[in-house]
Design a binder for these strands. Structure first.
Lengths: 237, 237
DNA sequence: TCAAAAGTGTTGACTGTACACCCATGT
DNA sequence: ACATGGGTGTACAGTCAACACTTTTGA
């Protein structure tokens, strides 16, 4: 630090916005904060970046400590750093958003950890600027998902066509014509049909599909052009 | 700081990737760094976040100090924070990208400041991880511009149709059919035709247009669907 | 008069959109 | 047998994509 010794240092934190999907609606994972200040109030999962780790590593560590989750899709979202966003001192926070299949972890989370899923449309009061963080992440999720097929990260490995359309309906808050959407989806070659049906959600049963990983890896969702004439308001809400 | 006093603090910097367009090709603004370490080597404009300012304010201040520019389109790009990205101590850097009409500032910049425009395809060796920062910003610029009409920020207030298509050709590194592109552009109602021609670049002269700010404000570039079947590789280069 | 860039129109292919019915099954 | 959700087909409309020539004017 010989050169920079006169520069002001500060605390750098990470907060994770964890989106989940249970087959019906979009959810968000929150915890009762485990340390002061604001202990026991609902909050995003957060923590401080340690000297030995990058922000990405910190986000993965924090997520793992607080929920047991690992190997989850996660990406940098935004930086929140207004001087007074925390009253107790200068803390700048980098947010990350994660996408997971919330059904897979429902039990583990509430048993071992103080974490709980809430509907994205109705969650408790949060500390600091965490609501703003969630809104920013939601906006980014929509933009990103308009170009890349990342929403599949919210589904189980085997999923059905009705599940995908519900997912898109939940994320963009729109109504989708399933006939057209399914056609578009299938013509993308992203999906491989299995000889197996999900009988949980209907009597007839819906065929399972899995992702064609080869194509998925770096595919742009041109098929998403199907979504009806967006306006910027739609994406920015 | 009563609660967080045991947490590790660090230095938070801001680096600005300033994209410019001169009517022909995409450029980037670099300076000879004015302080140690790495003094006098080419670098992005950077500096440390001060206690009284948000990251956004720091970015604007640094840009203004080093170039005289103000009121420029700027947005957060990404965070770079691997523990050893700078050898002289732990510094995490938030990058911003800015878009400006480079012709407007050509003289001022090289006279009063140590700043210089370079082609985005050919610039000098940079310090630290600044090349990676530029590549990330380029990728984000492409994604963002595929959904929002932000590239107009790179043009002067009055611009011509040939200028817009050159701009899109430069940003996406593609060849555009001007007949189709112009038609699409005009049908978006984003442009207002002036009764005045730019005679600098051709003998016949090209009509000037200005943006229809009302529509521009929150318009999605659905017209950009014109761009030929992108693949993720195209956007990610 | 020639060179250089601006501007303009048409057609066929494709993709998007709107719309309604039958299917398979568990109860 | 009926209620529930899954799946399929067609026709019209709109957008995209490919294509070449004329216009203007300064040198």
């Amino acid at each position: 630090m010989e050169y920079y010794k006169d520069e002001p240092s500060l605390l750098l934190a990470v907060d994770c916005i964890i989106f989940g999907f249970d087959g019906e609606s979009l959810q968000i994972l929150l915890i009762k904060r485990g340390f002061e200040p604001e202990i026991n109030n609902w909050s995003l999962m957060g923590g401080f970046i340690q000297p030995s780790e990058s922000p990405d590593e910190a986000a993965a560590r924090i997520l793992n400590n607080l929920t047991g989750l690992a190997n989850v899709y996660m990406e940098q979202s935004a930086v929140f750093g207004k001087p007074n966003r925390e009253k107790h001192g200068r803390v700048v926070s980098i947010t990350y958003f994660a996408l997971i299949d919330s059904k897979k972890y429902q039990q583990i989370l509430s048993d071992k950890y103080q974490a709980n899923w809430f509907p994205i449309t109705d969650y408790p009061k949060l500390i600091f600027d965490h609501v703003e963080m969630i809104n920013t992440a939601k906006r980014q999720l929509r933009s990103k998902a308009a170009l890349y097929p990342i929403l599949f990260e919210l589904l189980p490995e085997k999923f059905t066509l009705p599940q995908i359309s519900s997912l898109y309906e939940a994320v963009y808050d729109i109504v989708i014509d399933k006939r057209n959407f399914n056609r578009k989806l299938l013509s993308s070659n992203l999906l491989i049909k299995l000889n197996e049906k999900d009988k949980e959600n209907s009597k007839k049963g819906a065929f399972y599909y899995i992702l064609n990983k080869e194509i998925y890896k770096d595919q742009i969702m041109s098929f998403l052009r199907y979504l009806p004439s967006w306006s910027a308001q739609d994406l920015d809400k």
